[in-house]
């Protein structure tokens, strides 16, 4: 027992007191900033190298629902495009993930787009079922990390549960493979209504790098309403946690 106490004391406090303001490494790639003086030629140049067509050729905006945060556009045009380490980039509407040129203000979830019952019912307790549908295990590990001793999402009454029957919603990772599409649908149906859907990671939001692969079947995403989009490759635990906190109005 003394040994245990010694180990615990040695480790000290590991939890992050303020999940809203926790600093992350400068190099972490979160919300991009695109200079409003970007030229047509520059847009064309970076759109051509973007591996996931996240850059709109017409106006130079970056769609975080497609972006894999590979940083190549910013490395090509330093000073014109840059990724800040602002991890609060989740949104409740798909269109809000598009960052326009000259846009420097922070992204905040649009309160009016949140369904009223979500806050009324789940604000003090939200139980989620995670479904990986072709995820590469990095988003899954970041979701698991959200509940670990550092991030401790459980402090808000938010938890991942073992059965859809116990859940208030599902969190989907991965581009949704054909082989997983039926199980995903069954799982969603098994969650009692009202229920939320959260998409985590670029793959699940748009298919990402796998868009157009004949092995995908993304009908589920098209058929059902999504309450929260959490971008990233993988999504950082702080992006997920802040997104859910915003959704619940915490």
């Amino acid at each position: 027992m003394l040994k245990e106490i010694r180990i615990l004391t040695d480790h000290g406090k590991q939890y992050i007191p303020d999940l809203r303001k926790q600093p992350v490494s400068e190099r972490f790639r979160g919300r991009p900033v695109i200079s409003e003086v970007i030229t047509r030629e520059e847009i064309e140049k970076v759109a051509a190298i973007c591996p996931v067509n996240a850059i709109d050729r017409r106006n130079g905006s970056i769609d975080l629902g497609r972006c894999t945060f590979c940083n190549e556009c910013a490395l090509m045009l330093p000073g014109t495009i840059g990724f800040t380490n602002d991890y609060r980039i989740a949104a409740s509407r798909r269109g809000d993930l598009v960052v326009m040129t000259g846009q420097t203000e922070v992204l905040r979830l649009d309160e009016t787009a949140v369904r009223k019952e979500i806050r009324r019912l789940f604000r003090r307790s939200l139980k989620l079922r995670q479904v990986s549908a072709g995820g590469d295990n990095s988003c899954e590990m970041e979701l698991a990390a959200s509940c670990n001793v550092n991030f401790d999402l459980g402090r808000f009454g938010i938890e991942f549960v073992a059965s859809p029957r116990h859940a208030d919603g599902i969190v989907i990772t991965g581009p949704v493979t054909e082989n997983m599409s039926e199980a995903l649908e069954i799982c969603y149906k098994a969650v009692p209504s009202p229920k939320v859907i959260i998409l985590v990671g670029t793959d699940s939001i748009s298919g990402g790098l796998f868009e157009g692969s004949p092995a995908l079947q993304r009908g589920f995403i098209d058929r059902h309403p999504v309450d929260l989009y959490v971008p990233g490759n993988p999504a950082h635990p702080l992006t997920f946690i802040n997104g859910v906190m915003d959704l619940l109005g915490l």
């Binding site: 591996p51 990986s132 549908a133 072709g134 995820g135 991965g174 581009p175 493979t177 054909e178 082989n179 997983m180 199980a183 790098l209 796998f210 692969s213 004949p214 092995a215 995908l216």
Partner: peptide, 16 residues
């Protein structure tokens, strides 16, 4: 097989 995303095929199809 649930996770099959067609990666090997994409290595051929995506020339970039």
């Amino acid at each position: 097989g649930y996770q099959h995303r067609g990666i090997e095929r994409l290595f051929v199809d995506k020339g970039d």
